[in-house]
Design a protein around this nucleic acid. Structure first.
Length: 613
DNA sequence: GTAGGGTTAG
């Protein structure tokens, strides 16, 4: 499996980025593209702003400039028209200074400038972008009071606000209400906003249904509509559905896919390890004269890094730079993560140091990757140092940062520090999710603090966090390891009483617990129950059970279990295999079993010198 | 003459 991925990967990089000839043709292509106007558009866009905006507006370079202009405008008599003010608000909003825009708007109101629906739209948009959609609706109320009829722009901004705040049900309600009560005629942007919301919640089916609905109205879907759904399908690993929609968009509807369409598809394919196809799509987009952008390249960089192919990732970065793209913090974060995952911390730190020299600012993701690297290397002091450094720089650790740090602290047995950090996480208003909760329970169990884990479990009580089978798997395993099989047994009954379904891991840890105490009959009963319950034992279950028999010197059932494993196409793990061989050497098991055992040795183990003897 | 939407990272 690993080799297959690697060779596809190699083919991929060779095909795209090896040898000068290919690279050169790439370059020629790019330079041609520049000449034909396919190059960076940003510079030309900027000068356009100047052409169309009033002279003073065009000179605004930063927030201060905008504020100075505002001050100057409010001195003039007569006051400039609301249009001029709206234009200024737009500039400030585009710079993402939403709070500032709101402030300016308030000043406009107190100066008696007759704000209109354009101003209102900007204000509502600012509220929504600040996660203050409720305030946005309050402004809508002001619209009605001022006899400003809200239009599709205003309602779309509000709908988007609800989507941003994950209030998908409210978004759907608003959308339906607008249509039913004919408050406004939804246009393509509004449909696309609703579709984006549905996709965000993994509701691809409804999103596609809405796309079909659009086809029956005057408001036809556009490339945005298709891109949104294609991206969502890619994210949900429904890549074949994504391609179906892609083909429909191109061949049936005649839309030209753009760099975003292709980036989504390439990302989806990379995430599934389908490198050859990703390579094909990359070639196809270039054949269509669509140049990959920073994001496209970053997808490739990230994919290579996740496969441990950091050198290839660096090669991609070199190519993108040659082709005039500037790698950003996201690109470098992937690279840092790649080195960290390989434990090459000095290289990761070298990249980290180069980031500042390039005028980029490390963010929470950068730091999280590094402290994850240090934690994995069990260098908890350095990890803690990075953690402090990031908070000193005013970066707020997020859920991932805390979880990484917690895992690291538990791994080196610093339970007290871990608990302290957990309290801090709480104090910072970060709510632990399933994953963090699991890390903590597991950390406590692995550090002989099962009682602590159990009291946390009691404390959490009937919350949703405790309705996860993983929680029980951790605790049953933890209790078993501490020789508290009664507690493990109770937990097992508990989860069934709660209506939770034990999974193969639950059974395995419970069987392991029984075997550890020599309760082979109970272990066997549970083992037999697995098939009946539609949860057949896997490789691990068999190995655990076999080890239980061997440790308890019960040799009668070993051969039968081995035969069953053979029948199911399973194989032995290294530990179980060596235990079996030891027992044969000690003549506790008959040599005749060697043939059967030989069939159960996985291929990977045959090449290992230590075991082939 | 002014206002709105889509892609990437742990």
């Amino acid at each position: 499996m690993m080799n297959q991925t690697s060779s596809a990967l190699q083919a991929f990089i060779k095909f795209r980025f090896r040898g000068n000839s290919i690279t050169n043709s790439f370059l020629v292509h790019f330079q041609l593209g520049l000449g034909l106007g396919f190059g960076p558009h940003k510079a030309s866009l900027h000068s356009n702003v100047g052409e169309h905006a009033p002279s003073m507006l065009g000179k605004i370079r930063n927030l201060d400039g905008a504020l100075n202009l505002f001050d100057e405008m409010i001195q003039r008599r007569p006051l400039p028209s609301v249009i001029k003010f709206n234009q200024l608000l737009t500039v400030v909003t585009k710079m993402k200074h939403f709070t500032c825009s709101l402030d300016l708007f308030n000043q406009m109101c107190s100066l008696g400038i007759p704000v209109d629906k354009y101003s209102m739209n900007i204000v509502i948009k600012c509220c929504c972008q600040l996660y203050r959609t409720n305030d946005g609706f309050a402004v809508l109320g002001c619209c009605f009071r001022r006899a400003i009829a809200p239009d599709v722009f205003i309602f779309s901004a509000l709908l988007d606000g609800l989507v941003i705040e994950d209030k998908i049900l409210e978004a759907e309600k608003l959308f339906k209400k607008l249509i039913k009560q004919k408050l406004c005629e939804p246009d393509v942007v509004m449909y696309n906003t609703m579709i984006k919301g549905l996709c965000k919640f993994g509701n691809n089916v409804t999103a596609i249904a809405l796309l079909r609905l659009m086809e029956q109205t005057n408001c036809k879907p556009d490339v945005f509509t298709y891109n949104t759904i294609i991206d969502s399908l890619c994210k949900d690993k429904l890549i074949d559905d994504a391609f179906k929609l892609f083909k429909e968009m191109v061949y049936k509807k005649g839309f030209l896919p753009n760099v975003i369409t292709y980036t989504s598809l390439i990302c989806g394919l990379c995430n599934l390890g389908r490198w050859d196809e990703a390579s094909k799509v990359l070639k196809e987009m270039e054949d269509e004269d669509i140049s990959p952008n920073v994001q496209t390249y970053s997808v490739l960089v990230d994919a290579f890094c996740k496969e441990g192919k950091v050198e290839e990732a660096e090669a991609v970065i070199n190519i993108m730079v040659e082709r005039g793209n500037v790698p950003n913090i996201v690109t470098y974060n992937s690279l840092i993560d790649g080195y960290c995952l390989r434990g090459e911390m000095s290289k990761a730190m070298a990249i980290f140091d180069s980031i500042t020299l390039r005028g980029l600012v490390p963010n929470v993701v950068t730091y999280s990757a590094l402290l994850n690297g240090y934690c994995k290397n069990l260098n908890i002091e350095r990890a803690m140092q990075m953690f402090r450094e990031m908070t000193q720089k005013g970066l707020k650790p997020n859920e991932v940062t805390y979880t990484t740090m917690l895992q690291g602290l538990f791994q080196v047995g610093h339970c007290v520090a871990a608990c302290k950090l957990f309290d801090e996480m709480h104090a910072q208003g970060q709510i632990p999710n399933d994953f963090t909760y699991g890390i903590i329970l597991n950390g406590l169990c692995n550090n002989h603090q099962v009682e602590e884990a159990l009291s946390l479990f009691q404390l959490v009580g009937d919350s949703k966090l405790n309705s996860n089978i993983v929680v029980y798997n951790i605790l049953i395993d933890g209790a078993g390891k501490c020789r508290k099989v009664d507690i493990a047994r109770n937990l097992f009954h508990d989860l069934i009483g709660k209506g939770l379904q034990p999974d193969v891991q639950t059974y395995s840890v419970m069987i392991n617990g029984f075997c550890r105490e020599g309760l082979l009959m109970e272990a066997k009963q549970l083992f037999l129950k697995m098939d009946e319950s539609g949860c057949p034992p896997d490789n691990v279950t068999y190995c655990v059970f076999l080890q239980g028999y061997l440790k308890n010197k019960h040799y009668d059932n070993v051969e039968m279990l081995l035969q069953e494993m053979d029948g199911r196409g399973y194989s032995l793990d290294a530990t179980t295999l060596s235990m079996l061989l030891n027992q044969i050497a000690a003549k506790s098991l008959d040599r005749s079993m060697l043939k059967l055992i030989g069939k159960l040795v996985p291929k990977e183990l045959i090449d290992e010198p230590g075991l082939s003897a």
